[in-house]
Design a binder for these strands. Sequence first.
RNA 1: GGGGCGGUGGCGAAAAGGCAGACGCAGCGGACUUAAAAUCCGCCGGAGUAAACCUCCGUGUGGGUUCGAAUCCCACCCGCCCUACCA
Length: 820
Amino acid sequence: MDNSYKPQQLEPKWQARWAQTGLYRQTIDRSKPKHYALTMLPYPSGDLHIGHWYAMTPSDARARFMRMKGYNVMFPMGFDAFGLPAENAAIKNNVHPQKWTFANIERMRGQLRSMGAMFDWEREAVSADPAYYKWTQWFFKKLMELGLAYREKAAVDFCPHCNTTLAREQVWGDDRHCERCGTPVIKKELEQWFFKTTDYAEELLDFGGIDWPERVKVMQTNWIGRSEGANVVFKTEYGDEMPIFTTRPDTLWGATFMVMAPEHPLVDKLTTPAQAEAVQAYREHAQSMSDIDREAADRDKTGVFSGSYAINPVNQARIPIWIADYVLMGYGFGAIMAVPAHDERDFEFARKFNLPIIPVIAPETGPLDADEMTAAYVGPGVMVNSGEINGTAVSEDKGRKNPSIAAAIDWLVEHNAGEEAVNYRLRDWLISRQRYWGAPIPVVYCPEHGAVPVPDEQLPVLLPEDVAFTPTGESPLKFHENFLHTECPICGRPSLRETDTMDTFMCSSWYQYRYLSPHYEEGPFDPEEGAYWLPVDQYTGGIEHATMHLIYTRFFTKAMREMGLVDFPEPMLALYNQGMVLGEDNEKMSKSRGNVVAPDNLVAQYGADTVRTYLMFFAKWDQGGPWNYDGIKGPQRLLNDIWEIATLAYEPGPVDESVTKALRRKTHQTIRKVTQDMESFSFNTAVAAIMELRNTINEAQRKQNVTQAAWDEAVDNLLLLLAPIAPHITEELWAQRGGEYSIHQQAWPVWDEEIAKEDEITIPVQVNGKVRERLTVPAGTSDDDIKAAALAAENVQRHLDGKQPRKVIVVKGRLVNIVV
RNA sequence: GGGGCGGUGGCGAAAAGGCAGACGCAGCGGACUUAAAAUCCGCCGGAGUAAACCUCCGUGUGGGUUCGAAUCCCACCCGCCCUACCA
């Protein structure tokens, strides 16, 4: 009978068996510690990419490893199913987004099954399913109740191609383009819904208690952008209050002018008739410019004088108020005090428009001369020209740690002119999208009561199916009479529905909770499931979500804690970011480059197990790297060899005790190595260790010189260690060798330190740091004996050349270094 | 401009401050075969040498710490990623 390795046959066979026997059904079991393993859910674009395999199969292997280690593991899968591509496909191919999306999901389910992952499909959640988005809408209402959702008119980022507004996080790059389609965004004044992520700015900076990569923590910290300083209230000469934020209140005495953003509400009032024309022209110019031009590379400062003046509260100086687009309306108060002597941007502006420069910090080298300065001075020194705080030291510290800043803040408080303040770069999350394929915002606008949330019993607000898409991408909800017209839930008056839908990041902010009980109807998730499984123990996914999804879901969990739904502050205790598989040309895979690797073809050619093993072998997981069609041969040979090893009968000839012992040692060393590597996500070296064991077993196979018991121990453990990585072949071979179903329910092997121990060790002997000899000694030889043997060694003597060793360093079991 | 990550054979990569290059790919030599593929055996950083188990050089560059550095520190070069007039 032909019993060669045919993954194309045995993989579907076992996948069916697993499904049939409910092997991956994951239910509460209080007799075991729980482990919630989560991999970022895919968008159903229609085809599973090798990138999905790279994200999911090592994640699956880790979850399987935890299961064999004795944890009750939950490893769910679902789809982030709302979003623009579905709608764009609808416009292009005249197919309804729902049909397109659910057809893709169906196709991707099949592809996901071909991975042989341990997903519990009964926990699958699809965000575009009304049973799911009902709760997305419910969360929106809850956030409203908590005062964490509000509606405001603001100049927001708008993608003209996608025809919708975007959150700040979804505007990328130095040309400020749309994260989805790459079109440069424009600013638009619109009434939009926001979530108050800024309320949690301080708490989001606290990563205590979570094991997340340093890189993500740094990115989030920078994104939140905390800066310490003071709010200072300037008054215009007409008495209007003009608050500003500054990180350098100590330089207040050097403020020689003020600058407002062109969109600042006081611009109209402060513009004098003489300046009206110039200001109007400048504002129009600023508005017409896209953000790209506004932040163009040369960044030459532009601006215009308003004609009005403000009074500096520290010295009553009358200083001109300018309007310039280097001041952004979205940060602080949209206005600044300008201290050209000590701020580079202000300096540049002052030089260009001939505004006065007054130094207030004297560096150690002596006082500054305003006329001779060619750049702002931002270093340490001592305060001068600054009234009561003269003589205070200026350090390079930020905030109150800097004596001069502390003194300035105290002065401000004492004189009732300002207060210590912290400002964040983080903006509130804009969640309104002018698109059809998303969860409708559950709000009705009543002429009497304004924005009224839709009552719970009317949720979900369903997306109407009979809609006509226009080529412009404008939301068909705006023209859907039945959807649009409704009654006010409070008074019954005819009212209009909100036609915007929610940012899909809203759907993915809480999906890990819906997985617990995707069919639960009494709430977003079943509290009993939640009490057992939550929070997520191990999250894995790409780094690209560092400042988007990963901030949103943290915000969400903190808000859910306010709602009383959870009692922990962080959604995911540990996070690991995998790298990216690149094309063979070492470039990002893309259709236009023609370097895309199709997993379906690979599965057909090599089988899923080989693809999985190769993905885990070719690089450390967090690094990623280029795909290589030749490289996959290594894992392919590995699985073929293992097939041979496990299926060919072993008949020991004359047994060699020392070879037997060596095989057992290698077996136990491999268990130790693979266990540690699986623990630390070092899958590549885990596979390498398995390959080494394979090599050792191969040799025993050829020589037939180990005992049957040692042989079986080696082969059984080889299969167990490989089971999380290559689940099908190991299941098949386990069964063929008479093992109990399923290998995936077996306990992870444990190594015996005694057996793993080497009985001879090789110790390099260095003379002055260069290896001159290698000693093979029994393990446990005393340092003194090793030292003596080292000094006696022939090549060592030769290099000592009669000189007396000055010092001999013996590192236990490691090396000897003789210094002369 | 700021921040982060990285730079090791022909290639992918490994190395708790302690034998650099495990494991694999490719290559080369040999076996098997009519032949090729597959498989098996051997070699495989560079230089010296007929060959090394001997010697020298070698982890982007230059310094430093150390008995000892791919690893730690300083400066620089290159690549990738993030961020960018944030007051």
